[in-house]
Design a protein around this nucleic acid. Structure first.
Length: 201
DNA sequence: ACATCGATCTACT
DNA sequence: GTAGATCGATGTA
């Protein structure tokens, strides 16, 4: 689907070398990038403002005990989506990182709304832009992301990860949310200047 | 088979 | 602050 008129700057896909580093650094560097969904025939987008890293040897990582049917997409190529259901209600979107087959990923926790606000608000049943995408389950609902997108590339519609050159500035590192295992490590990151859009401070 | 728990969110008190 | 919605993976038998 074509870009809407208001998409201005030089939006470009992330280059292959972007993925060629460790997952914690990818979790930091993906903040500021633009996530686009064209699901449902509607262009919706948001800027990533909050992420969490999940890596090999990390007891909180879904891949910790090896590959299962649920987490299989985590072992796919870098730059693809791992989508899973949490608490029986909410879909969560992860970016699979590299190297392929290690089962590492970055959880997308919050976005600053950019485009398609009306559709996203309708899907969410909520008109407050600050609450539209401020949580992993919320952003999937707003962008119509479900298990149907599990394993898809993030370089082609319906899901795209784009760079418009935005500088997110300094990041804040905090412990990840909702964990019992390995709960202390500060592998949740968010942009200080975008803090109004994050799920929690 | 059954019980428990989890990378959540909303609505209520 | 906490109850409740409800799915899939996992552990115990």
């Amino acid at each position: 689907m074509a870009k809407p008129a208001e998409v201005s700057k030089s939006l470009k896909p992330l280059p292959v070398p972007f993925w060629d580093r460790d997952t914690v650094n990818i979790a930091k560097d993906v903040i500021g990038k633009v996530l686009v969904s064209t699901l449902g025939g509607v262009w919706t987008s948001g800027r990533i403002v909050e992420t969490e890293a999940y890596i090999t040897g990390d007891a909180a990582c879904h891949a910790f005990k090896g590959e299962t049917r649920r987490n299989a997409a985590m072992f796919g190529p870098p730059g693809t989506a791992y989508v899973y259901l949490i608490y029986g209600f909410h879909w969560c979107l992860n970016l699979v990182t590299c190297p392929r087959g290690r089962g590492e990923a970055v959880l997308i926790r919050a976005l600053e709304p950019l485009e398609g606000l009306e559709v996203m608000a309708e899907r969410r049943g909520c008109g407050d832009s600050w609450a539209l995408l401020s949580g992993p389950g919320k952003l999937c609902q707003a962008m119509a992301i479900t298990a149907a997108q599990n394993g898809l590339s993030l370089n082609t519609p319906p899901l795209m990860l784009l760079d418009d050159g935005f500088d997110s500035g300094p990041l804040i590192a905090r412990p990840r949310v909702g964990l019992t295992k390995n709960a202390e490590v500060p592998w949740r990151f968010y942009s200080e200047i975008s803090a109004r859009w994050v799920s929690r401070k």
